[in-house]
C-alpha cells in the first residue's frame, strides 16, 4: 500500500502550481487561453468573411472568380494545416517585409496576434467557403426567385434572404469550424506564439509537472467547447425557428 498522505500532498501541490498568483502558473495559462480565444474569434470571423465571398464566387461568379475560388479551396484543404501555418507565417511576414523594403520603407514587426489571425483565418476561409456554398444551395430556389421577382438588389437579397435562409443549413458546419478554430490555435505554438498550448509547455517544462499542466490545459479546452456548444445550440434553435422540428417530420 502506498502512503495515503501522498495524495493530499499532491493535490495541494497541484493547486499551488495552478494558482493565479506567483509562483503559481495559473495566470500564464489564463493569459494563453485569452490569446487563444482572441485568435480563434478573429480567425473564425475572417473565415466567415472569406467564406461568404468564396461561396458567392463559386456559385455566382464569372469564370475567373470561380477558378480562383476553386484553386484557393483546393490548395488550402489539400495542404496539412501545420505546413500551411508555417509557410504562411514565415513566408507571409517575410514577403510583406520584402515588399516594404523594396518600396523603401522600414521592416515592421508583425504582431503575432494579427499574423495568427490572418494565417488561421485564411485556412478557415477555405472550409467556410464550402460550408456556405452547400448551405446556399440548400435554399429552395423559389425563395431566391421570389426575391428577384420583387425587385431586390443583389446586396439586399443577400442580407435579407440568402444569408438568413441558408443559416440553418450552415450552422452545423460552422459550429464544427468554430471548434476546429479554437483547437487550431494550438498549432501556432510551433511559430512561437504564446497561446494556451505554448504557455502550458513552458509551465510544464519549468516545473516538470507535465501531468498537472497538460490536464489543466485539456480542461480549459474542454470548458471552451462545452460553453460554445451551449451558445451554438441556442443560435441554431433561433435560426431554425421557421422550420418544423426534424422529429415532427419523421
Amino acid at each position: 500500500m502506498a502512503d495515503a498522505s501522498i495524495i493530499p500532498a499532491g493535490i495541494t501541490g497541484m493547486f499551488d502550481l495552478l494558482s493565479p498568483v506567483a509562483p503559481g502558473w495559473g495566470a500564464n495559462l489564463l493569459r494563453g487561453l485569452v490569446r487563444s480565444l482572441q485568435i480563434a474569434f478573429g480567425a473564425f470571423g475572417m473565415g466567415l468573411i472569406i467564406g461568404t465571398f468564396g461561396s458567392y464566387a463559386k456559385l455566382y461568379g464569372g469564370p475567373i472568380a470561380r477558378d480562383l475560388a476553386a484553386i484557393y479551396t483546393t490548395l488550402v484543404r489539400a495542404i496539412p494545416e501545420l505546413v500551411m501555418i508555417i509557410l504562411l507565417y514565415y513566408a507571409g511576414t517575410d514577403l510583406i517585409n520584402r515588399i516594404l523594403e523594396g518600396m523603401g520603407y522600414q521592416r515592421v514587426d508583425i504582431s503575432g496576434l494579427v499574423a495568427g489571425i490572418v494565417v488561421l483565418g485564411f485556412v478557415q476561409g477555405a472550409y467556410a467557403t464550402e460550408v456556405l456554398r452547400g448551405a446556399i444551395k440548400a435554399i429552395p430556389q423559389g425563395e431566391i426567385e421570389a426575391a428577384r421577382a420583387y425587385g431586390m438588389s443583389p446586396v439586399l437579397m443577400m442580407r435579407r434572404i440568402t444569408l438568413p435562409a441558408m443559416l440553418p443549413h450552415a450552422l452545423p458546419g460552422l459550429a464544427n469550424l468554430w471548434l476546429i478554430s479554437t483547437k487550431d490555435t494550438a498549432l501556432l505554438a510551433v511559430v512561437g506564439f504564446s497561446e494556451l498550448t505554448l504557455e502550458t509547455r513552458q509551465a510544464a517544462g519549468t516545473t516538470k509537472a507535465y501531468m498537472t499542466f497538460y490536464l489543466a490545459a485539456g480542461a480549459l479546452y474542454l470548458f471552451v467547447t462545452l460553453f460554445s456548444s451551449v451558445i451554438l445550440e441556442s443560435v441554431e434553435k433561433r435560426a431554425r425557428r421557421g422550420m418544423p422540428s426534424v422529429k415532427e417530420a419523421r
Binding site: 425563395e143 438568413p164 443559416l167 440553418p168
Partner: peptide, 11 residues
C-alpha cells in the same frame, strides 16, 4: 408575382 409553389420566405 404569385408563384405555383407560393415561395414565401421560410425564415
Amino acid at each position: 408575382m404569385v408563384f405555383q409553389n407560393f415561395n414565401l420566405w421560410q425564415h
